[in-house]
């Protein structure tokens, strides 16, 4: 059984919001790339929405991280070693915060270029250069890292709960993809009248992501149980948080259940895609708030008992 005598770092509201928004920024960029690579041409409008949002979100992420520092003006110490006699770049691959700082910086560059690409183009036609596709693919890999490393930051500690489970990184990336899919499914409706098929695709993807998230929650609980620390999650008030998180899966699971509702014409062509429950305002908000609560519960339950 694990024993902990550590003190909490008091990572609270700014870090919770950072973990949440970094997930949506990374997840949105990844989904946009996937829509470009594998979707139909009319998914391009939604891909552009995602690329448009990823950059501002990542800027907010940087601001949140900086605000949380005790010495915000020293944010650059994350990248530059100012130790007398050892001045140079700070890069510690074994420290997830160090690795994540660089990932955030590099992803900002990828998100910025993609942002410029979509805001300088007119129309929604998919006329993307090969170089930009490669750029998007590399950016997506970094985006997935950004969405997941925050969980590894927690695991690589000696805090109860966090250090007792190595499933948090996986849990965060699955939930980030789910929140991003819900966010984009909802946002796509404001961009194009022809967004219903895209919304349906994202709704289905969200259903799959939530299923993966559910599996990762089970893995998280099993690892905590093995360490004898499950009681921290089942105690009040955190158990209420977990109930709310599970409840937030309902719109996604309803969408997944209704995926066969696409209507077909007599010739066999689909004439209407089903409305994704997560694409409705209420559905999307429930899914997204559920992901925020997940971050909140995982971060706070380890620090406050």
């Amino acid at each position: 059984m694990a024993e902990h005598f550590v003190q909490p770092p008091h990572w609270e509201v700014w870090i919770t919001l950072y973990f949440f928004l970094a997930g949506i920024a990374g997840g949105s960029y990844t989904l946009a790339t996937m829509l470009r690579l594998w979707g139909s041409p009319r998914d391009e409008a939604t891909a552009r929405i995602a690329f448009t949002w990823a950059f501002p979100l990542v800027v907010v992420c940087g601001a949140l991280l900086t605000i949380d520092l005790g010495k915000p003006l020293r944010f650059w110490h994350m990248m530059i070693n100012t130790t007398p006699g050892s001045v140079g770049l700070n890069f510690k691959p074994w420290s997830p915060i160090s690795l994540g700082t660089w990932a955030l910086l590099i992803f900002s560059l990828f998100a910025f270029v993609s942002f410029l690409e979509v805001i300088t183009k007119r129309g929604n036609d998919r006329n993307v250069s090969g170089a930009m596709i490669v750029w998007n693919i590399i950016g997506s890999l970094i985006a997935l890292f950004l969405a997941s490393y925050t969980g590894v930051v927690l695991s690589v500690s000696n805090q109860p709960v966090w250090s007792d489970s190595y499933a948090i990184g996986g849990l965060f990336v699955a939930s980030a993809l789910s929140a991003s899919a819900a966010f984009l499914a909802f946002m796509s409706r404001f961009r194009s009248d022809d967004a219903l098929p895209t919304e349906s695709r994202l709704g289905l993807a969200d259903g799959y992501f939530v299923t993966i998230e559910l599996i990762m929650i089970v893995a998280f609980f099993v690892t905590l149980s093995n360490a004898g620390e499950l009681w921290r999650e089942t105690a009040m008030p955190w158990v209420i948080g977990w109930i709310l998180i599970l409840a937030s899966f309902i719109p996604s699971l309803m969408t997944l259940r209704g995926r066969g509702r696409t209507r077909y014409s007599a010739s066999g062509g689909a004439i209407a895609a089903s409305r994704a429950v997560v694409g409705t305002g209420t559905g999307a908000i429930i899914v997204i708030i559920g992901v925020l609560i997940l971050r909140f519960v995982v971060i706070y339950s380890a620090q406050f008992q």
Binding site: L31, S148, F209, A272
Partner: peptide, 23 residues
């Protein structure tokens, strides 16, 4: 998890993408 997520996303996007293209 990320790899499984991308695969799941691919399945979802391709599956419905085929449907909509048919229509």
């Amino acid at each position: 998890t990320a790899a499984v997520g991308v695969l799941a996303g691919l399945i979802a996007i391709r599956q419905n993408s085929d449907d909509s293209q048919r229509g």
